[in-house]
């Protein structure tokens, strides 16, 4: 007996959907607080329609081929919208794999007289739905990664504010780890601000840098040298005891850079450099 899977599925479409919906509604992990039953049904129906329309005997186990582009698109949409609604990856996984149970159940009822064919189709349907599952997770992770990338960009943008603390003195508090890419941004911002404000002293405050290794120190030295080339002085402040320890243990030479323990002492030093004095007023 030759079984046309596409015809069979089209004929049993309603039944599959019912099975699938019942499976989902019976499941403990159903999140009807996040997605109403009607919406769930509409979502499921759309996906099932696309699958039934695409599937035929030849392409059944090639779930990642171009013929399934429509299905993949719908899957991606479902995955992203579910991730936004707050479904866990597990919920989405159960949802997709519920389709497999429904399909297999219908197949079992339909071709129970021919174990060989049934076995064959069971395997192929399994493969197909597995590939759907993979697509779902891929999209899910891709969505998450986009969020992470965007946040990284935002952090690097907002994390380098150059503050004008006095006429001719700018300060740049660095918070977080310094890597090559960030140093580049920090350096460019600082140098540009020096040009814009005509400041002759820059204070680089590293009290927010969790750890200094030889690479970070290298970047700091580069920044200081670049400021010097521009014709401004650069003071590094906020060196914590632990950082002083690691720097010396690593054998990094910071002796030709002016370093101060706190921003306050750096500012005091800067005042002295431009011949300013801060005094209590006589009242």
């Amino acid at each position: 007996m030759k079984v046309e899977i596409s015809k069979l599925l089209q004929k049993k479409r309603k039944q599959i959907l019912e099975h699938w919906m019942n499976n989902q509604l019976a499941n403990d992990s159903l999140r009807d607080d996040l997605l109403g039953n009607d919406d769930l049904r509409a979502q499921s129906e759309e996906l099932l329609d696309a699958v039934v329309k695409t599937v035929n005997n030849q392409n059944l186990e090639h779930g990642l081929s171009a013929e399934f582009d429509d299905v993949t698109e719908i899957l991606a949409g479902i995955s992203i919208s579910r991730a936004r609604q707050g479904f866990s990856p597990r919920d989405t996984g159960i949802y997709i794999f519920g389709l497999k149970d429904a399909l297999l159940k219908v197949l079992q009822d339909e071709i129970k007289n021919d174990p060989q064919t049934l076995y064959d189709f069971t395997l192929r349907i399994s493969k197909l739905v597995d590939s759907f599952g993979i697509t779902t997770f891929e999209t899910f992770i891709k969505g998450r990664e986009e969020v992470i990338l965007r946040q990284t960009d935002e952090i690097s943008e907002i994390s380098t504010p150059v503050i004008r603390v006095w006429d001719g003195i700018v300060a740049l508090p660095i918070i977080g780890t310094l890597d090559s890419a960030r140093t580049q941004v920090v350096m460019e911002n600082l140098l540009q601000q020096i040009v814009d404000t005509g400041s002759s002293i820059a204070i680089l405050d590293i009290s927010g840098v969790p750890a200094v290794d030889s690479l970070v120190a290298q970047h700091l030295i580069k920044t200081v040298s670049a400021t010097r080339l521009m014709g401004a002085e650069c003071i590094i402040s906020g060196i914590r005891p632990e950082i002083a320890q690691t720097v010396v243990h690593l054998g990094i030479d910071l002796s030709n850079i002016v370093t101060k323990a706190s921003l306050a002492s750096a500012l005091k030093y800067a005042f002295a450099m431009i011949n300013l004095e801060v005094r209590k007023s006589q009242k």
Binding site: Q184, M187, E188, L191, Q192, I194, V195, K222, S225, A226, T227, R228, L229, M230, G231
Partner: peptide, 20 residues
């Protein structure tokens, strides 16, 4: 005395290892 070096120039020189 060298004056008015552009930021980009300063960065380039430092990356080239020329600290003048």
């Amino acid at each position: 005395v060298v004056v008015g070096m552009q930021p980009a120039v300063a960065i380039t020189l430092i990356e080239l290892g020329l600290e003048l």
